[in-house]
Design a protein around this nucleic acid. Sequence first.
DNA 1: AATAAATGTTAATCTAGTTTAACATCATTT
DNA 2: AAATGATGTTAAACTAGATTAACATTTATT
Lengths: 194, 194
Amino acid sequence: MSYQPLLDYIKKHVDLTPEEKAILLSKIIDRRYLKNQYIVQQGDICKTINFIIAGCTKMFYVDEEGQEHIIMFSVEDWWSSDLGSFITQTPADFNIQCLENTQLIQFSYDHLEVLYKEVPKLERLFRKITERAFVASQKRVVRNFSLSAKEQYVTFRNTYPKIEQRVPQYMIASYLGITKEFLSKIKSQLIQDQ
Amino acid sequence: MSYQPLLDYIKKHVDLTPEEKAILLSKIIDRRYLKNQYIVQQGDICKTINFIIAGCTKMFYVDEEGQEHIIMFSVEDWWSSDLGSFITQTPADFNIQCLENTQLIQFSYDHLEVLYKEVPKLERLFRKITERAFVASQKRVVRNFSLSAKEQYVTFRNTYPKIEQRVPQYMIASYLGITKEFLSKIKSQLIQDQ
DNA sequence: AATAAATGTTAATCTAGTTTAACATCATTT
DNA sequence: AAATGATGTTAAACTAGATTAACATTTATT
């Protein structure tokens, strides 16, 4: 498997020397999952941070009534982990499941701690990654607040046009926090609006 | 003004040598704001990350209809900034306004970049701070999804009992994403539930 | 090709939360 | 003490989105 997508991604944030790259590459694991396999399950301790080389995942939780709620999708060049579980090494609130056959690069908790010591620049990298993740999450809170379901759907479709093609509609409804029936209604309204 | 609360806070995450502490203290600014003053306004570029020594702030945005939506409150030992604006140095989406007279310690963007070079441990500190902020934000998304307004209010009251005493009810309604009238209704329901 | 399973749509009824508007209480200023 | 502005409550009418249930379409399996 090629590590190039990860190295390209990293280069956007920090410059690594060839030695630092070598240390990094020695500490990561590549892994393939089949469609429907779980990378993390609710209650597990999330032991890895995962960078997606190919494929697509959903992060979701199941509430007391057995209802599934999708928090995020991740595709190529994105990260996919239960960060809360990972940083505190306590049981995960979320499941991460593959929606397609998926190739990942995994940073394990223990290896990452060593990596931070051997390549301090990686603290900077993961600081920046987390900053961006935080800002994205905060934007989602804002969207939830101020947009109707219809507006949120249109925003989602415009922001992630590729994801909409790749995953079933009922999962998009779950991501938006609405029922699949109401998403259907919204879509037929949008067609009539034209 | 005492820097002790900041140093105590930092000690929970990283150990600084006396020299590192000295560098840190030389690069921070302390600032007092009066009640109702703005630390950041929507459209400004957020130039500082702020640690609260005393007081209370709200972060909010104003939508096209002029409606105010509160994203978070911050009190002593918390941070208060528009991180999205700060990290990209682009115009802020949010306002931050003091709800009481407030004392802050400010890290300016330029000083922080220098600090990261002179005291690399601070990359680690801010990575950890941001990780926690991200997890908190993600939990808020989950709450929005899975709890009714009543449940969200009870959760808020249990999680931040002190904040509820300090800020007016209509701001709590705004934080919860409901109207003040509906919060009133919820509160009278809770009294009857007993 | 036939069947089953998964996904998507439509429509009727229902409910959590909004809107509007009137009134009540509390705090601040004169 | 009166008056003003800020905050909080109640109730009636309304709406966005949920629920239920029946049916349609697509995909996978035999």
